[in-house]
Design a protein around this nucleic acid. Structure first.
Lengths: 138, 138
DNA sequence: CTATAAAAAGACAAAAAAGGTCCTTTAGGT
DNA sequence: ACCTAAAGGACCTTTTTTGTCTTTTTATAG
C-alpha cells in the first residue's frame, strides 16, 4: 500500500534528466523519454503537468522544448510528486469537513494527519539537485 | 496520492467495533457490518484477512462469530492496515533487489525508505484501544 | 444422523483508476 | 506558407478496487 504510481516514478526520472542538462538548454519530449526510459506520449502529459504548476518552462515550435523553471536546488521532491499525483492525502478524511462524518470524534483522523505531515516534511527536505547527484560535487 | 483504500477504512471500522464489545463476546459478520456501515460480504473477506494473520479468532456454526485474538491495547493500527492492504511500501524499489536497476546509485531509494519507516513508526505507535476511545477513561 | 447456523473459499462482475496511444489544435520559427 | 514542437482532448487497454454470489467446510442442536 501507499505506493507511488508509475506516473510519479516517470515524473522523477524526467525531471532528473532536465536537472542534469546544462543550465538553460532545452530538451525535447522525445529526447527526455528516450533517455529516461519513459513512453514518450505519457511523458508529454507529465511535462504538461510540470508546466502547469510552473516547475518547467516549455517552448513551442522550432528550437522549442523544455527546461527547468528553477535551479534544481530549489525544486523539492514533494513538488515533483504532487505535480503529477496531486496532494499527499493518506486518507479521505483529510480532504474536507463533510467527508468524515465522525469529524471531531474520529480518532483515526489525527493519525493520518501526522502521517501526511511526516511525508510532506521528508519530501520537502529533498531537492532534485541532491537526487541528480554527480555534477555538483559537495 | 498515498491514499488508504476503502478496504483499509472498513478494516479499521470493523476492528474498532470488535474492540468496543465486551471481552470474549462473539460478533457475527452481519452484526459488525450493520453497525459499522460496511457491505457485509466485503467485510467477511476483511475478517478472513484478520483471522489469517491472527488478529481475530473466528468460530463457525451456531453460536459462532468473531472476537479479537488480543486485547485492543496490543493491536496496533499498522497491523490492522497491513492485514488487509499488505506491507507499507511507498515505492516498488523497496520490494526487492532486482526491481530497482539503479540500486545503489538510485538516490531516490533511501528517501522512500525513510518515508516508509516514518509511516510504520507512526502506525505502530497507535493501538486500537486508543482509537476505540470511551470505555477506558485515561 | 440430520437439520441448521455461520465462517471459509473461490468464482465472478461492475466500477474506477492507472497506464498509455493517437489525433487535432495552437504557437512559434524559417 | 510551411515546418516544428508542445497543448489539449478523445480514446483505449489493463489493472486494481470494490464488491456479489455460490458452494464448501465446520460446528452446534435437536
Amino acid at each position: 500500500m501507499m505506493e507511488l504510481t508509475r506516473k510519479g516514478e516517470y515524473a522523477i526520472r524526467g525531471i532528473l534528466y532536465l536537472a542534469r542538462q546544462p543550465q538553460g538548454k532545452l530538451s525535447l519530449v522525445g529526447e527526455i523519454a528516450a533517455a529516461s526510459g519513459v513512453p514518450k506520449t505519457f511523458l508529454a502529459k507529465i511535462l504538461q503537468d510540470f508546466t502547469k504548476v510552473g516547475l518547467v518552462y516549455s517552448f513551442r515550435g522550432t528550437g522549442g522544448g523544455f527546461s527547468l523553471a528553477r535551479t534544481p536546488d530549489r525544486i523539492t521532491l514533494r513538488e515533483v510528486v504532487e505535480a503529477v499525483e496531486g496532494p499527499i492525502l493518506p486518507n479521505r478524511c483529510l480532504i474536507g469537513a463533510g467527508s468524515c462524518e465522525n469529524d471531531s470524534s474520529c480518532l483515526v483522523h489525527p493519525v493520518w494527519k501526522r502521517v501526511r505531515d511526516e511525508i510532506v516534511t521528508i519530501l520537502d527536505g529533498v531537492t532534485i539537485e541532491e537526487l541528480a547527484g554527480e555534477d555538483h560535487p559537495t
